[in-house]
Each structure stands twice: as structure tokens, then as C-alpha cells.
């Protein structure tokens, strides 16, 4: 792209610039409000949650894992038949 092909920046008059600034401020406020609302709902949900139970803060793959221990893996001495060379 040569220098002549560059897009000319739009020149805003004072009124348009003022309106743009005002819009930007409202957008910033709206974003802040959204973050605040998400934060407050999260805080309330965490406050109401029973974090001590299985369905607590962290997701668990197997809620029964405490009562059903993982089966023991075969030891190195008992190698499966047919695999020994």
C-alpha cells in the first residue's frame, strides 16, 4: 500500500467528538456494570453453595470414588502370560 492509498482518517467536529466521548463513557460504564453483576451473582452462588459436599466447588469425575477404591494394578512380577520373551 502506497502512501496515497492510505485511508484518510475521518475528522470529527467538536460536537461529534463530544458525542463519541460520551458514548465511550457509557460503554465503559456498561462493561463495568456487567462485570460487577457477574461478580455479585458468583459471590452469592458461592455463599449459598454447600462446598463441603461431593457436589461442592470442584467437579469430581466419580462422586463414589471415596467408597469404591480404585482396583490395584498388577505388580511387575506378575507379567501377563505370552508377553514374556
Amino acid at each position: 500500500m502506497t502512501e496515497d492509498e492510505r485511508p484518510t482518517p475521518v475528522k470529527l467536529d467538536a460536537q461529534a467528538r463530544k458525542a463519541q466521548k460520551r458514548r465511550n463513557l457509557w460503554l465503559a460504564l456498561a462493561l463495568f456494570a456487567f462485570v460487577f453483576l457477574v461478580g455479585i451473582t458468583t459471590a452469592i452462588r458461592l455463599g449459598d453453595a454447600d462446598l463441603g459436599s461431593d457436589g461442592g466447588l470442584y467437579w469430581r469425575n466419580d462422586p463414589q470414588s471415596d467408597s469404591q477404591p480404585m482396583p490395584e494394578l498388577p505388580s511387575d512380577q506378575e507379567s501377563p502370560e505370552g508377553e514374556a520373551s
Partner: peptide
């Protein structure tokens, strides 16, 4: 999008 997300969260 924002409204549906907020409703779900709340």
C-alpha cells in the same frame, strides 16, 4: 447475549 447470560447466572 448479556441478558440471557445474566438470567442464567442469577
Amino acid at each position: 447475549g448479556v441478558s440471557v447470560l445474566l438470567m442464567w447466572l442469577a
